[in-house]
Every structure is written in structure tokens, then in C-alpha cells.
């Protein structure tokens, strides 16, 4: 078990954002966490990243309790968080953004090679490596944060709404990239999405979070079969996706 969250509760002031949530991700697995706006998906990610503290419950990563660690230590253990809304450093150049990813892993020597490999893979970023990240389009910024996370050679990447605010064609590109790199590096992914269409066909297992609690869990097919009610809400196609494509 790479990531194991046991029965955590998180409060924002008086408001209970998560109550008794458990979730796990195995090595090499792709898991998606779905749910409507305000369900607590991002809170769960922030808690894993160490930016928010759980009031109770445990978070273990690689068999080690990380509930009390500061964000920088969790990142250095190999849990890369890609938060929503494409948090690029807009006053830094594209290359500086990427180097921050490289530096996240101390003591690794293959950095320059990795950087070239990533720049070869993302020609748009290579073209604009000296320009400010602020000048990139939304889609390019999403590529940048994913590339940055890849460069830190993480054991798990947690992505919060990678399709947020992107045109459908660009969303497809983003998922194609994830699929490519998943195959290349045997990545472990935890993907948070509001709209399920793309994430479902992409995942091995799915959790549905609503009002701070896990409502359903299972394979994508199971979720589709059992959840006619959810279907209207999430708007995924009536033909059930068949696991990984």
C-alpha cells in the first residue's frame, strides 16, 4: 500500500469538511476521486500534502505516518501534489518552474537528462522555456505543472482537477500525456475531478465523495452500473467505460 488514509476528519473552523474518510492507493494504480463542488476533494488533497491538518485519523505514505510532517518533507518523500487552478510561478520563467521540480528531489544526479527528456516531450514548453510562465495559455500552464511534478520523480502524483477550465480537446491532450507517462514510468496517480467523463475511463478504481464522506467506491464499471442517480449528475456516457483504455 503506497498511500493509506484511515478515518480522517478535517475541520475548517467550525465546519466539518471531511468526516471519517478512508482511502488507499496501491503502487502503480490510478485512482480517481470524484464528487461535486464542495464535497471536500481538495481538502483531502491538501491534508495529504501537509497543508491542512486532520483533527483525527492517520495518513500513511510508503508505510510511514506523514500526518505531522510539513509540506516540504512530504514532497521530498515523493508525494507530488498538483493543486487545482494550475499553480505555476507566473513571475518565473518556464525553465525556472521546471527546475524547481528537479530540485525537489535532493541527491538525484540524472536531473539534466530528465529535463531534456521532458522538454523533448513537451515541445511547446521547450519553445518557450525562457518566457515567463504567466504568458503561457491555460493548457500550456497545465502541461507545465504536470511536467514540473514529473521532474520531481515522485512515487505518487495527486492531481486536483487537471481538466479545470480547459477546452475539451486540451483535456484530451492532458489525459493522453498522463497515460503516456504512466506507461513509461509506471506512475501511481490519484486524480480528483468534478466531471467524471475522462477520469473514469482512465482509472482502476473510483471513490465518490459527497458532503465530506465517501459515498461509493469500486471499479469504474461498478460505479456506472450502480449509480444511475449519479449518472445524471456527473454526466458520463451511458455506455460504461471499460477500465483502462
Amino acid at each position: 500500500m503506497l498511500l493509506s488514509i484511515q478515518d480522517i476528519s478535517v475541520h475548517h473552523g467550525q465546519i466539518c469538511a471531511l468526516r471519517g474518510v478512508s482511502l488507499h492507493v496501491r503502487q502503480g494504480e490510478t485512482v480517481s476521486l470524484l464528487g461535486p463542488n464542495g464535497a471536500g476533494k481538495s481538502t483531502l488533497l491538501w491534508t495529504m500534502a501537509g497543508a491542512v491538518r486532520a483533527r483525527s485519523g492517520t495518513v500513511e505514505f510508503g508505510g510511514r505516518g506523514i500526518g505531522d510532517l510539513p509540506p516540504e518533507s512530504i514532497a521530498r518523500l515523493g508525494l507530488a501534489t498538483v493543486p487545482e487552478r494550475r499553480r505555476v510561478f507566473s513571475s518565473l520563467t518556464v525553465e525556472e518552474n521546471l527546475r524547481l521540480g528537479l530540485w525537489a528531489q535532493s541527491g538525484y544526479r540524472g536531473g539534466e537528462h530528465d529535463l531534456h527528456q521532458v522538454l523533448d516531450y513537451f515541445p511547446k514548453l521547450a519553445e518557450r522555456r525562457r518566457s515567463l510562465a504567466a504568458r503561457l495559455s491555460g493548457g500550456e500552464q497545465q502541461m507545465l505543472v504536470i511536467a514540473r511534478a514529473l521532474l520531481s520523480r515522485p512515487r505518487l502524483i495527486a492531481l486536483d482537477e487537471p481538466s479545470f477550465g480547459l477546452a475539451p480537446m486540451v483535456v484530451d491532450q492532458v489525459y493522453d500525456i498522463l497515460q503516456d507517462w504512466r506507461a513509461r514510468r509506471n506512475l501511481t496517480l490519484l486524480i480528483v475531478e468534478q466531471t467524471a467523463t475522462r477520469a473514469l475511463s482512465f482509472s482502476d478504481r473510483v471513490y465518490v465523495l459527497r458532503s465530506g464522506q465517501i459515498e461509493h467506491t469500486g471499479s469504474p464499471a461498478e460505479i456506472c452500473d450502480s449509480e444511475r442517480l449519479e449518472q445524471a449528475y456527473f454526466g458520463f456516457p451511458s455506455t460504461a467505460p471499460q477500465g483502462r483504455s
Binding site: 497543508a51 510539513p70 514532497a75 518565473l92 524547481l100 514540473r148
Partner: peptide
């Protein structure tokens, strides 16, 4: 310098910088 880039990153988005392993 690396320190300089990290400082600028932290100055723009402190939380994200920490999530990239930059020691606060």
C-alpha cells in the same frame, strides 16, 4: 542562483513552493 529562484518562487506562492520541497 538556486537559492534566488527558490526565494522568488516562495515569495510568489509560498504554499506551492513548500509543496515542491522548498524548506520554509
Amino acid at each position: 542562483t538556486r537559492t534566488g529562484v527558490e526565494l522568488r518562487a516562495a515569495a510568489e506562492d509560498y504554499q506551492m513552493a513548500r509543496m515542491l520541497g522548498i524548506r520554509a
